[in-house]
Amino acid sequence: MKITREDVEYVANLAHLKISEDEQDAFVSDMENIISFADILSGVDTGDVEPTFHALELENVLREDVVTNDYDRDDLLKNAPSKHNGCFEVPKVVE
């Protein structure tokens, strides 16, 4: 699959990654190499094959509805780059 600059821009936007001008071409060619490498998959006949999302088919791993939280808010917030009044903080969100 040919990868274009537009593809890279589109994907970078979805992934919230800033790609600078000078990185653009490298990403185009790297992605193209990797995607082309994966294009071999199109040759596999998967007509009636269901996808496998997990090697092990586990089911119904559920927890009881019982409160178990015992964390201190200071701990929860201590790694935050910016916080205020017990909250995490970001620049103004325009809704």
Partner: peptide, 20 residues
């Protein structure tokens, strides 16, 4: 890219079928 609209079936889902 492999999950994005239009490529999901060709890449992600295909890979999971190959996994099967």
């Amino acid at each position: 890219y492999a999950l994005s609209s239009g490529y999901y079936d060709a890449y992600y889902k295909k890979a999971q079928k190959v996994r099967t």
